[in-house]
């Protein structure tokens, strides 16, 4: 991860925001303007809008809210929830909790990496999936568990994990066909 002071990045707030209404971002900034201690909530709002924290947006927030970029970057990199790179449409959180560990989470990880063709933390080329870890999803009695878009799946076997992914791919294809038709 490069330092936030570097300005070689050519993207601008407008270019990352093409897909998103800039007004939504402005609403978010206005909601928290002058509210002390709201940086984490602002960043959560940005991530909700973009799926990650785009650097131009962080720079924009820094200007708008009068916060040092280093402070924003410090908070953004401290917490596990925040991502500085774009993610796929579906975010897979593979639980790394103790119960999952002793019930073979590593085998699920191998299967998912193989099925998706990515390493842990990676995004598939078609940007459908991003595979990440979560410290614990709190569904320990269903270990090993993963969560996709807020829905927990467990207890998993390598084959069941692969099937969940394939099923979501199938749904994706169907909805694309419907849109096409």
């Amino acid at each position: 991860m490069s330092c936030c002071c570097q300005t070689e990045e050519s993207t601008t707030i407008q270019s990352v925001s093409t897909a998103i209404q800039l007004s939504a971002l402005e609403d978010l900034i206005n909601r928290y303007r002058g509210v002390e201690g709201s940086l984490i909530s602002v960043l959560q709002g940005v991530q909700e809008l973009y799926g990650y924290l785009p650097r131009p947006v962080l720079e924009h927030i820094s200007l708008q809210l009068g916060m040092k970029k280093a402070r924003i970057y410090g908070v953004a990199t401290f917490y596990a929830q925040f991502r500085l790179t774009p993610v796929g449409k579906h975010l897979i959180l593979l639980c790394q909790g103790t119960a999952c560990h002793v019930n073979g989470a590593d085998k699920i990880e191998t299967a998912l990496c193989d099925e998706l063709g990515v390493e842990m933390g990676g995004t598939t080329d078609d940007r459908v999936f991003t595979l990440t870890e979560a410290a614990c999803l709190g569904c320990c009695s269903l270990a090993p568990v993963m969560m996709i878009d807020g829905q927990a799946y467990g207890p998993l076997t390598p084959d069941r994990a692969r099937k969940v992914i394939r099923d979501i791919y199938k749904q994706e294809e169907q909805s694309r066909e419907e849109v096409g038709a």
């Binding site: 002390e36 201690g37 709201s38 940086l39 984490i40 909530s41 960043l43 959560q44 410090g74 908070v75 401290f78 917490y79 596990a80 929830q81 925040f82 979560a134 410290a135």
Partner: peptide
């Protein structure tokens, strides 16, 4: 926002105030 250390009281408070925990 996901940090185990925020279970510690003073870290939790720092996080509530929008800072690193």
């Amino acid at each position: 926002a996901g940090a185990f250390v925020c279970g510690e009281e003073t870290a939790l408070i720092a996080s509530l105030e929008g800072e690193r925990g």
